[in-house]
């Protein structure tokens, strides 16, 4: 991992940091510049969050204000002990996020490797690959549901019926809801990963590549020994941002499966939607939201710690 480490500039920067900081520390304004953003984020995001915590302790269905009242931990108890959809949603969230993040990373890596070489029309191919990320999620979901995956009129099934023996025409969203949704998520997020990884690949200096080529390394060896170690930091970044963003993806579920059949594609954020919006149950939705935040903090902290360890160069 010497390569990776040698490329980590902040480590070097921070070692040189104290003296530099000391010298620049005379400008008290510098450090304070983070304050406006913190104040803004605290006001806009924490005020509703505190209200959410308060609401989570209430029995409150918007449509039945006469029954509103303090409920203690009842909402949490309901979710944890009595609601089977909650357990399914936790499992689904985990599977969706891990599956979609890993596969988008892999596909993104593949995309990036493809367009990191020169070939005729490379710019166009890169453009084509980026496009799914630019498409409005709602539009993408409706296109996939109606025009691609519809079992009767969908293009995917028409191709399958026409090209494959036995005329298979699977009902994707009905019989394979989880893989279908993960597929659409990967289709949307692989370009994002590609952008990050491409950035990483292009920051590998040409001298390094030439050096190993002179040593007679094959393309695979070059990928394994140079590209991959160098990219690991970029992959971690993609994994982290991908996790934060993909967990919150509700539009495709709302537009394509409504979280079903059954609870098959209900993730925690979508369950919040089902309870709080469709069911007008503010208390239950709030409790669920608080649980999601707590879980996210735990998971992301673990991720960040792992990332930190790796960055220190294991």
């Amino acid at each position: 991992m010497a390569v990776a480490q040698s490329r980590v500039r902040p480590a070097a920067g921070r070692q040189a940091g104290p003296s530099l900081l000391h010298r620049l520390g005379h400008q008290p304004l510098g450090r304070l510049l983070v304050l406006p953003a913190i104040i803004y984020a605290v006001i806009v995001t924490q005020a509703p969050f505190i209200l959410t915590i308060w609401y989570s302790l209430q029995r409150w269905n918007l449509q039945r204000p006469e029954r509103r009242g303090f409920a203690g931990l009842d909402n949490y108890r309901t979710l944890l002990t009595r609601d089977p959809s909650f357990r399914e949603a936790i499992l689904n969230t985990f599977l969706f996020v891990v599956g979609a993040v890993l596969l988008s990373l892999l596909l993104g890596l593949f995309y990036a490797e493809l367009v990191n070489r020169k070939f005729p029309g490379r710019g166009i191919v890169r453009t084509l690959l980026i496009t799914p990320f630019l498409i409005m999620p709602v539009a993408a979901a409706l296109t996939w549901k109606n025009m691609m995956l519809n079992p009767i009129y969908g293009v995917v099934n028409w191709v399958a019926r026409t090209a494959l023996p036995g005329n298979p025409s699977p009902n994707w969203l009905g019989h394979f809801p989880e893989p279908s949704i993960v597929g659409v998520l990967v289709w949307r997020w692989a370009p994002f990963m590609m952008l990050i990884l491409l950035a990483g690949m292009q920051s590998i200096s040409e001298e390094v590549r030439e050096a190993v080529r002179v040593d007679g390394a094959t393309a695979w060896q070059e990928f394994r020994d140079i590209t991959m170690p160098h990219l690991s930091r970029f992959m971690q970044l993609g994994g982290l941002l991908g996790t934060v963003f993909i967990v919150q993806e509700v539009d495709p579920l709302y537009m394509m499966t409504k979280g079903g059949p059954g609870n098959a594609t209900t993730t925690l954020p979508y369950l919040v939607y089902r309870k709080a919006i469709e069911g007008s149950n503010v208390g239950l939705g709030a409790a669920l939201g608080v649980i999601v935040v707590l879980l996210s903090i735990v998971v992301i902290t673990l991720l960040l710690r792992a990332l930190d360890r790796m960055m220190r160069g294991v």
């Binding site: 620049l24 450090r31 959410t52 709080a276 709030a286």
Partner: peptide
């Protein structure tokens, strides 16, 4: 955060990211 890092810069960064953890539907009523 980058050039004048306060001591707890990592925590601050994490705080910003953590504001993205709340599902939109969870805060919509507040």
């Amino acid at each position: 955060l980058a050039l004048r890092p306060p001591k707890k810069w990592k925590d601050i960064l994490f705080f910003f990211i953590s504001t993205r953890f709340m599902p939109a539907a969870g805060v919509i009523v507040p």
